[in-house]
């Protein structure tokens, strides 16, 4: 049976204005799968040609992946290949990748998008089925292994999907789509568990 989503205190204290992330702390679960809104993270959209990859990798402390649909991770920082000159860099330890890239003189574009995206974790043996309610990609382990990532769609929203473990995924979407994505995943979760 599915549990109704839990609403937690939706406030993160900073020294200035209060940060109010979308859907903060919400989670829901059913047999074999849970859907959890993840805490805020630092993120940049990083663009640059192959010539700049080494310098950017060095500054970020991880090797930016070259291969489509792959990601690289070091500690709490991950870089997801989204396109031939595009990476989504996510830092869950609060260390700003924008500042790291600012030091790089090699040609690139780094744009802060920490607040643009909301992340949802989908975990459990039924995670794959939950996502396949709206994601048309083949998410089997052989085709979409741990560490695989892709921009794709979930129902009528665009998402970035990252497989974090055999039965766990991170779903990133734009802030105003998070309501839709979270609601969709909850409904899909119930069906995947059924």
């Amino acid at each position: 049976m599915a549990r109704a989503p839990v609403k937690k205190q939706a406030v993160v204290k900073t020294d200035g204005a209060e940060r109010r992330p979308a859907l903060a702390g919400q989670e829901a679960s059913a047999t074999g799968v849970s859907v959890t809104v993840l805490p805020p993270a630092e993120r940049i959209s990083l663009r640059g040609s192959e010539a700049s990859r080494a310098a950017l990798s060095k500054a970020l402390g991880l090797t930016l992946p070259q291969t489509p649909k792959t990601s690289a991770a070091k500690g709490k920082r991950a870089a997801l290949w989204l396109g031939p000159d595009e990476w989504l860099v996510i830092d869950e330890a609060g260390k700003d990748p924008l500042a790291d890239c600012a030091k790089v003189s090699a040609l690139h574009s780094a744009v802060g998008i920490s607040h643009r995206n909301v992340a949802v974790a989908v975990a459990g043996p039924a995670a794959e089925a939950t996502l396949n309610a709206g994601c048309p990609q083949d998410l089997s382990l052989a085709v979409f292994p741990v560490g695989a990532c892709s921009r794709t769609v979930l129902g009528k929203a665009e998402i970035v999907l990252l497989r974090t473990a055999q039965d766990a995924f991170r779903v990133e979407c734009w802030r105003s789509f998070s309501d839709y994505v979270f609601t969709f995943l909850q409904e899909a979760m119930r069906d995947a568990a059924a």
Partner: peptide
């Protein structure tokens, strides 16, 4: 729904992404 090979992603992907 068609399957389309993206020359950048180097694999076939569902038409919904295109």
């Amino acid at each position: 729904m068609l399957l389309i090979r993206c020359p950048y992603c180097e694999e076939e992907r569902p038409e919904l992404e295109f």
